[in-house]
Design a protein around this nucleic acid. Structure first.
Lengths: 191, 191
DNA sequence: TACGCAATCTTGTCAATGTCTAGATCCGCT
DNA sequence: AGCGGATCTAGACATTGACAAGATTGCGTA
């Protein structure tokens, strides 16, 4: 039920979520405060509470939204005929372009990780990654490896540890993903 | 310097760090509070401040300690003749066994990421991983891939997303790391 | 040995936060 | 019209991080 109709504010729920994204992008998930968000959006200090119940509730909503967006992107990429390398690249692209969502999604201590919507979308996203390597000899292992290298690259890039000045993360991600299955035809890209 | 001598408490600095590890292991990095730690250790609410200046200072100390432990482990593994698979496995083992440290280390928004001690130890750890794949055709790319798959597996396992009931994370990590260089023999790289 | 000093820890305080409660405001439906 | 309920406001309370000033303790040095 993501629909919130314009009452006093217009669309407070979305406004708060957007503000939270801004704050997280700039200061990380630790920088979010319900009162600060309320201030940014122009409502009273307890306004957001009614929509999210909790600080954890707000982050749960963000995580659910993030997993759904991610699953959508991966499914679209696969539906367009993308192999694992393309799907993995889409994963990294999501992480870079929606850094705030991504950071919250993989910090289950910050939100209600067992929320049904979150779990459903997360499972959906994982299925696409696993399906992309289903033709491998050991699909279980290949799936773990594929998800690991993709997620690891995204995480390391976002934390700044892997930063290569002058390199485009998407191109580098494509090369790294291709490296995993370099013995097969797909995936080699000119630098 | 890490040396703290027994004054009133005995070794408050270490006691606070240990308590923080306990809290983080159980409730994540968001659960740490200076006052709560002080309570657990049995000192007044402002006791820890003198040793760490800040909440961020405390986490900086934890991150530095973590990167140093990690770098030590990786260097030991490599010195014992371990190839990349063994080094990567040691990386995952550290992440699983020192989950609290590991979680803080890769959340630079929580501490002073530009602390010299932190940066030095982090660079040292990265060098071992890069060096383990230096014999590859494209060392830069292989290094990024190696670090990504290793770090990704560790992260996903710790967040519970990759959990396989009945599987030992270390064994699975070894298999995943081996998958990256499966075309080469189980490569005993001589020292 | 005694003294002074600095490191260590305590106590008190302040602004800010999360969350709860009660009340005000406004929309949609009958 | 006007009622009901969703939406938001206002006030309050416990807790937290951070700061300031004072008390306590061990160590080097004369």
């Amino acid at each position: 039920m993501t629909s919130a109709r314009p009452y006093h504010h217009g669309d407070l729920r979305r406004a708060v979520l957007d503000a939270a994204v801004d704050v997280i992008t700039e200061h990380g998930p630790g920088g979010v405060g319900l009162r600060d968000l309320a201030r940014r959006v122009g409502v009273s200090h307890a306004g957001p509470v009614h929509h999210f119940k909790d600080k954890a509730g707000l982050l749960t909503a963000l995580a659910a939204e993030g997993f759904e967006m991610l699953a959508d992107r991966l499914e679209e990429t696969k539906a367009a005929g993308g192999d694992f390398v393309e799907v993995g690249t889409a994963y990294v692209r999501f992480a870079v372009e929606h850094r705030a969502h991504f950071e919250v999604m993989f910090r289950p201590d910050l939100y209600h990780a067992h929320d049904p919507a979150v779990e459903a979308a997360r499972t959906r996203a994982g299925a696409v990654l696993a399906d992309g390597v289903a033709d491998q000899p050991d699909p279980e292992l290949a799936s773990a490896a594929a998800w690991s290298i993709t997620h690891g690259f995204a995480t390391l890039w976002n934390t700044g540890v892997l930063e290569r000045p002058g390199h485009d993360p998407i191109e580098l991600a494509r090369a790294v993903a291709g490296f995993l299955f370099r013995d097969q035809g797909t995936g080699q890209t000119p630098a």
